[in-house]
Design a protein around this nucleic acid. Sequence first.
DNA 1: GTCAGTGCAAAAACTTTGCATTTCG
DNA 2: CGAAATGCAAAGTTTTTGCACTGAC
Lengths: 145, 145
Amino acid sequence: MISTEEAIEELKKIVKQKGLKYTEQREIVLNILIHAEDHLTAEEVYNEIKSQDNNSNIGIATVYRALSFLEEVDLITSINFGTDGKKYESNAKSHHDHLICTECGKIIEFLDDEIEKRQERIAKKNKFKITSHSMQLYGVCSDCQ
Amino acid sequence: MISTEEAIEELKKIVKQKGLKYTEQREIVLNILIHAEDHLTAEEVYNEIKSQDNNSNIGIATVYRALSFLEEVDLITSINFGTDGKKYESNAKSHHDHLICTECGKIIEFLDDEIEKRQERIAKKNKFKITSHSMQLYGVCSDCQ
DNA sequence: GTCAGTGCAAAAACTTTGCATTTCG
DNA sequence: CGAAATGCAAAGTTTTTGCACTGAC
């Protein structure tokens, strides 16, 4: 779990390192994902920006470009939760996996150290450098059985 | 691991149960996914059909509809990542999880018994009755590092 | 001042839908 | 025959790109 300030600092550092430019738009996109309750699509990020600041004239293309950039530098991650398309989340959050009830939609977050360890081991064995992972267990919760 | 014939039988059964119709197109799509080495996009399935039978006049829309249908009845599964869009695989394969290279899109399948066991345990602890699960590890493969 | 980044609009890519026609049961 | 599914083309969506302009360094 990283604070907003730390994530923003990290972004500044990366941008500088690459000889690129720091822009408000990238910060806004990152900031929205850090504070989002949920995983957001590009369009949801765009709408969120518009709803936070009616006068913003940010373009959807900039949102897409910012998301691609932020994912490339590993500050955010995209995953897919099913049929909703690509969704993004900030990496500056404590990691967790999901138990999802297919009846009522309830989501329970959990973390299992042993699984995390074994994932690392599997990655190493396959010479993968893991950037993130996602795991969903689908089933029926106690209330719905 | 289920044989092609069993999967086709299963499809016939489901279709009958639902009072729907058995069509060659759905069978072709399912068959292609069963024999595919890789995970395929809708377009790749379409191209594969065309390349197997030049005279086929199947439409891309039918492929999309067949894929949605097969996923709905749980004969195939889709996963989505990176820039390649949604990819499908047959469920008539032994269960496995995925290591996905975010650079080149390569997918490595793996299975870890210990993880499977712990997933069961977590489900039990939360009084969930698991129906399925999916796990993806995202990272950079040895070729792309 | 330079050049990466932006906004806009247009293009490309991807997916779904409407409808006449065909096919399964 | 009647309903479901198909093929095609057209319409929607989503994402990327070209280009002139702006702003960070």
